[in-house]
Computed example of a mutant assay.
Amino acid sequence: MKMAAIATAITTTLVSGSALAAEVYSSDGTSLNIGGRVEFRGDFLGESSGAELEGSMDNKSRFRVNVGGNTQITNELSGFGFYEAEQAVISSGDNDPNTSFTQRYLYAGLSGNFGAVSFGRQDTALVQLSQMSDIGTYTGAQKSFIDAGNEQINNNIVYAGMFAGDALSLKANAILSSQKDQNSYGLSGIYTLPMGLGIGLGYAAGDQWLFAPAAETSQFMGGLNYTVGQFYVAGTYTQGKIKVSTGDVNFTGYEFAGQYKFDRGFVAQAAYGKQQADESPTNSSDEEFNNYVELTGKYYFNSSIQSYLSYKYNMLKDADNSLRLGLRYDF
Rank of each mutant, 00 (worst) to 15 (best):
L126S: 03
L126I: 09
L126A: 04
L126D: 00
L126R: 02
V127N: 07
Q128F: 01
Q128R: 03
Q128A: 05
L129C: 09
L129K: 08
L129Q: 12
L129P: 04
L129I: 15
S130Q: 01
S130V: 04
Q131I: 01
Q131M: 09
Q131V: 05
M132E: 04
M132V: 09
S133L: 02
D134N: 13
D134T: 01
D134M: 10
I135C: 01
I135R: 10
I135L: 05
I135S: 01
I135A: 04
G136W: 02
G136M: 06
G136Y: 00
G136E: 04
G136D: 00
G136F: 06
G136C: 07
T137Y: 12
T137S: 09
Y138K: 01
Y138T: 02
Y138G: 03
Y138P: 08
T139A: 10
G140N: 09
G140Q: 06
A141D: 13
A141Q: 13
A141M: 12
A141N: 14
Q142L: 13
Q142K: 12
Q142P: 05
Q142N: 14
K143I: 08
K143P: 03
K143F: 01
K143W: 01
K143D: 11
S144R: 10
S144Y: 03
F145R: 08
I146L: 10
I146V: 14
I146S: 09
I146F: 04
A148Q: 08
A148W: 00
A148S: 10
A148M: 10
G149D: 01
G149A: 11
G149T: 08
N150S: 12
N150E: 08
N150C: 05
E151D: 13
E151M: 04
Q152Y: 11
Q152A: 11
I153K: 02
N154D: 15
N154F: 09
N154E: 15
N155A: 09
I157C: 09
I157G: 05
I157K: 05
I157V: 15
V158C: 06
V158W: 06
Y159T: 07
Y159V: 07
A160T: 15
A160H: 12
G161M: 02
G161W: 01
G161A: 08
M162P: 04
M162Y: 13
M162W: 10
M162V: 14
F163N: 14
F163Y: 15
A164Q: 14
A164I: 13
G165E: 09
G165S: 03
D166C: 07
D166G: 13
D166Y: 10
D166N: 15
D166R: 14
D166Q: 15
D166E: 15
D166P: 06
D166V: 10
A167I: 12
A167S: 15
A167K: 14
L168H: 12
S169N: 15
S169W: 05
S169G: 11
L170Y: 09
L170V: 15
L170T: 14
K171H: 15
K171T: 14
K171Q: 14
A172E: 04
A172F: 11
N173H: 09
N173K: 02
A174T: 13
A174W: 08
A174P: 06
I175V: 13
I175E: 00
I175R: 07
